[in-house]
Nucleic acid binder design. Structure first.
Lengths: 245, 245
DNA sequence: GAGTGGTCTAGACCACTCA
DNA sequence: GAGTGGTCTAGACCACTCA
């Protein structure tokens, strides 16, 4: 394989290799947690030097699709093996460490999607979605009331049992049972007067200021795979964020 | 220069080079916007191969301390040249693009720092700080009331004139006038009932839910150089965030 | 056309893992 | 000790910038 600098959509070799590796990830040739072939194997398979494979793999490792381990090999990233286990959970106690996290499922329904949700999820009108509502507790304190919308075509046969088994490891569940790894999320955050539903669920005063977080989560290929709207009690907790210039 | 694999604090060569380059940045040998020597020059200066310099420079470019431009050279990053000009301003209109941003300085005082601020800024007790309050407007709509605390030892001779000159480009001002580049910030976000001061300043109803953002900004070497507490009206705006798993 | 960063190769040696 | 990823070199050729 050689670069073709004159072609209109010229990509350097290592990007082309990266794309080929990504395809194998998407197709499931290697599943989450599996080792991928060694750099030398990939180099001979794609007929390029080890250095070029390294560059492709390095970018995928930076994007956290792959995980390298010196002496052992390179593995498909998985929520199960993550160290900082909840990169998507930003709610933190004002004082002290984040402690036991638990979740209670309120209900799970399958219904025809509203147009806004379908648009965000990239579904055609009339498609059905799963809607689930739950409460999150930190150290037994209810702090978050949320409603989650999932495209039913990607979550065939989702049941409350499955959700309850995984409690507060939903993204591991998406990955393990449905092969959907959440890579990235965008959030819009506001301060609002709590709707009655949320205030009651969290045992908070009526219309108390709460943090409203609307999230769209994305999987491989930038496809939206989850919508989430949560109301958060920030009297003794805060949303933590880091900005890199 | 050769690696010393047996030494207790072994660092690969390219990390050592990276450290040397960082030192030149901190010392101001090359200022924001300046070009640094070419890779080949650095390679011969440090007596290593171009590849090793590249790896050091690449990491610094990823961390956004340097900016590479093919064919031109490598430059010290600067807030002035940034494309996405306000990476630290996350407040965005719910509908439409972010439009004209303006700021009004309410007052600027120099005072003895309270103990909490001094601790966060890493100052000894009794040190003095600047405190400035201002209002930010998006499309002429007042949306943010904030109080900023700066260590006076790093901001010698700060005046309201200087602040007003730079309006909503404070971080460019820190960099241009005081050689302090903001690299990173940590924020804690809550929903609170607006204090009277903020409600009045933004023309909002008393005790309306507002987004409270407490920020600590960091410069080279992970040193805190600014504290900021802002109250944000999120009736028609939201705080935008992206999370990478 | 001289100089810059960007890509790619081939090969050496290293630290680490695991049987 | 065989196999992995990690570092480092030297050298080639490329695309891009600027005078």
């Amino acid at each position: 394989m050689k670069p073709a600098p004159d072609s209109p959509a010229f990509q350097p070799l290592y990007r082309q290799i990266k794309e080929l590796i990504t395809q194998s990830l998407v197709s499931g040739e290697w599943g989450p947690g599996d080792p991928i072939p060694s750099e030398l194997e990939l180099a001979s398979r794609f007929n390029v030097s080890q250095g070029t494979v390294r560059k492709a793999v390095s970018e995928l490792a930076e994007e956290k699709l792959l995980v390298r381990q010196q002496g052992r090999g390179t593995f498909v990233a998985s929520h199960a093996q993550e160290r900082s286990q909840f990169p998507f959970l930003r709610l933190t106690p004002d004082a002290g460490q984040r402690s036991e996290l638990s979740a209670t499922l309120l209900d799970l329904r399958r219904m025809r999607g509203d147009s806004a949700s379908l648009r965000l999820l990239g579904l055609s009108s009339g498609s059905s979605i799963y809607v689930l509502r739950r409460i999150l507790r930190l150290s037994d304190k209810p702090v978050c009331y949320e409603e989650i919308r999932l495209p039913s075509n990607r979550f065939h046969g989702l049941t409350s049992q499955v959700v309850e088994q995984h409690e507060c490891m939903l993204y591991s569940m998406y990955e393990g049972r449905f092969g959907l790894r959440v890579l990235r999320a965008e959030e819009r955050i506001k301060a609002v007067a709590a709707p009655d539903e949320a205030a009651v669920a969290l045992g908070a005063p009526k219309a108390m200021p709460m943090l409203l977080i609307e999230r769209v989560a994305f999987t491989y290929g930038g496809e939206a795979c989850e919508l989430r709207r949560s109301y958060n009690d920030t009297r003794q907790h805060h949303y933590w964020n880091q900005i890199n210039g």
